[in-house]
Amino acid sequence: MPFLIATSIGILAGSGVWLLLRPRTYQVIIGLSLCSYAVNLFIFSMGRLRSGAAPILSSEAGSLADYADPVPQALVLTAIVIGFATTALFLVVLLASRGLSGTDHVDGQEP
């Protein structure tokens, strides 16, 4: 599982960065979204990868080793919400730029 997670984070981040460096605003926003997925997965994986372990203590029995770390899960939730909001904001600016300049180039004019 670590290999799978690491590869997917790598592919997402790599594609994201490539798209981020492209000249069209639509490519940039998709690139930002891919990067944010990669980052969210990365944060999640920082709590150690466990399957079938609950993040909330359900009973007194068992040790802490039986549970998943809840902090990265809380962090990733916050990061998702903030990332979503800022991407939405960027989308508005993107559309405004398209409307004002008549082109979807990031510099507002065709090269």
């Binding site: 600016v93 300049s101 990031v106």
Partner: peptide, 18 residues
């Protein structure tokens, strides 16, 4: 146009920094 253009770059740079 000038502010929208500047904001576009500003937002991308700061999102990447985030």
């Amino acid at each position: 146009p000038r502010r929208v253009q500047a904001s576009l770059h500003y937002i991308v740079v700061n999102l990447a920094a985030s």
